[in-house]
């Protein structure tokens, strides 16, 4: 059984021995030249493709900022003080600085 499998494996490993070369498809030259002479995409399209990542990063940044601002604002409201986003930020940090000073 093992001898039989070994024989089959050896035959399979040698099966490329008489592999004949294949002719390249007809009209390949023309298609290569056609592709070479094709105009490349315009500079504007290229710039936009690269810029879209920048736009996406900006959008994500803005969304994160808004989320943080709202969450701080809500924190201020839950403490019973209605503060604006900036002032809630300020009070948060001022409080921390003051406690650190007294420590």
């Amino acid at each position: 059984m093992n001898k039989n499998i070994n024989h089959l494996v050896n035959e399979t490993l040698d099966s490329f021995a008489h592999l004949q070369k294949v002719a390249a498809p007809d009209g390949l030259n023309e298609r290569i030249l056609q592709r070479m002479n094709q105009p490349k995409g315009s500079k504007e399209v290229y710039l936009f493709r690269n810029a879209q990542w920048l736009i996406a990063a900006l959008v994500i940044g803005i969304v994160c900022n808004v989320y943080l601002a709202i969450s701080y604002n809500n924190k201020g409201e839950s403490n019973g003080t209605e503060t604006s986003t900036i002032s809630s930020f300020e009070s948060h940090f001022r409080l921390e600085t003051t406690t650190n000073l007294y420590e």
Binding site: L8, T12, L13, S15, F16, L19, Q20, K21, V22
Partner: peptide, 19 residues
């Protein structure tokens, strides 16, 4: 299935390409 393969070796060569 390589087009340049001999009929007798067809199955084995296909197997070898897969491996």
């Amino acid at each position: 299935v390589h087009p340049g393969i001999q009929l007798a070796n067809k199955e084995k060569a296909t197997m070898l390409f897969k491996a």
